[in-house]
Each structure stands twice: as structure tokens, then as C-alpha cells.
Computed example of a mutant assay.
Amino acid sequence: MISDEIQRELQALGSIGKAADLARFFKTGPGEYGEGDRFLGVPVPGVRSVARRHYAEAGDKDLCRLLESDFHEVRLCGLLMLVERYERTRTRAVRAATADFYLRHRTHINNWDLVDLTAYKILGRETFDTNNADLLRSLSDSERMWDKRIAIVATMYWLRQGHSDLTFELALRNLNHPHDLMHKANGWLLREAGKRDIVALCDFLRTHIHSLPRTTLRYAIERFPAEDRQAFLNLSKTLEHA
């Protein structure tokens, strides 16, 4: 099967030292968000190269095997192959089937980079093209944190088409999620929304400043002028101690 060849190529590109670094970076220790994940030590450009070389010849069974791998880079490769399949076809039925495959196998999308490199390119575009924001709302209400992150990151595609309301809505739904990874994702997408509509972002921040996690706020205002950043941080601190 082509999946075996892909895994051999990824193993050949790996590095024991890099694998150890990645395991620490992606928090794979006991009790951490990536607990138990394993790495080959392949940089993302190498994974992308393998994915682009083989996506056209890989069937769904190959992709299933890749997504079920214990190794992070193998799962990433399978997901990037899905992105290639989705973006390179002009057939609506193939795109719909690819998005459905992604959705049905999302239990294997279990770290932030796997989400961030793929969610908006597949589910973001699919939900926009089919006007199916309810799918992202459903994921946003899931008990699973990675589903929630998929939902908010997917709105990146909506933002790039000039639609920011969904980003604000989904950020608000999980504004007080307990995990820092959601605080970062919400702040990142709010910042991106602000690039399109700075007035809407400022209104959102002022309205919810009393409940904004500090990390979310810092990410959201990262591109503000220094004076404006400090004003929002001071307001947040004042309310925190009120």
C-alpha cells in the first residue's frame, strides 16, 4: 500500500534529536495535552513534500491508515494530503466527500498544529461554500476541546471572504474555556477579525473585557499601537481587581 511507502519516507526524514524536541514542544508528558503522542522528528516542510508527492495516488484506506498512526508526522501527512485533495479538485462532490472524511476522522486530529494547518482549508471553505455555519456551531459546542479549536480556526476562511460575525460568535461561545490552547486560538482569530474590522473587534473587546482571559486579550490586541494595547491591558487589570 502507498501508506507503507509514505511512512517509510517519513521515517527516513526523521531525526531522534528533533523527535525529542518536538515531544517536549507539543507537551506529550503525563497529564499534558499531547500525552502519549510520538514523533519521528520530521520538520513540517518535509511532511508537506511527502504529502504533495503522494496525495493523488492515495485512496481512503491509505489515508485511514495514516490518520490512525501513533506518529504525529504521519497523521499530519494524511491530513495535508486531504488538504491537497480538497484544494486541487474542482468537483463539488469530491470536495464534499473529502470534508466529510475529515469530519468523520477528526478524533485523530488531536493537537493544535494538526488543527491549525488544515481546519480552515477544508471545513472552513466547505462550510462557507455551502453556507453551513451550523456545522461549526455544533463543533464549537462539542465537549472535545479539539472540536472547539477546529470550529474557531475554520472561521479563518470566512474571515478571508470578508465575514467576521461567525468568528466573534464562536469566540464568545468558548471565551471562558479552561484550557490555554482555546484562549490562544480565540485571541488569534479575534486578531485576524480585527484586520478586517477593527471597530467590531474593539467593540467586542470593550463589551467582554470583564471576562476575557488575559492570553486571549494579549493575542487579540497584538497588532494594536502600543498606547492602545496598554489601555486595554490597564482596563482589564482594573476590572480584574475591582
Rank of each mutant, 00 (worst) to 15 (best):
I2F: 13
I6H: 08
I6G: 04
Q7H: 09
Q7S: 14
E9W: 07
L10W: 14
Q11R: 15
Q11L: 13
G14Q: 08
G17E: 14
A19V: 06
A20M: 09
D21T: 08
F25L: 15
T28L: 09
G29P: 05
E35S: 12
P43F: 10
A56M: 14
G59Y: 09
D62L: 05
L66V: 11
L67K: 13
V74Q: 09
L76R: 07
L79F: 12
L80R: 11
R88C: 12
R88F: 12
T91C: 07
A93R: 10
V94S: 11
R95L: 03
T98G: 05
T98F: 02
A99G: 11
F101P: 04
R104E: 11
T107C: 08
T107F: 06
H108N: 11
H108I: 05
N111I: 00
I122D: 06
I122K: 03
L123R: 00
R125D: 05
F128T: 02
D129V: 07
T130I: 07
N132G: 03
A133D: 10
L135D: 04
L135I: 10
L136W: 05
L136F: 10
S138K: 06
L139K: 00
L139P: 01
S142V: 00
M145G: 00
D147Q: 02
I152H: 00
Y157F: 14
H163L: 13
L166D: 01
L175W: 03
N176H: 08
H177M: 04
M182K: 01
H183T: 01
A185G: 01
A185N: 01
G187E: 05
W188E: 03
E192F: 01
E192W: 01
K195I: 03
D197L: 11
D197G: 09
I198L: 15
I198C: 12
I198D: 13
L201E: 03
C202M: 13
D203G: 10
R206S: 11
H208A: 13
H210W: 10
R214I: 08
R218M: 04
E222W: 04
E227H: 07
R229Y: 05
A242T: 11
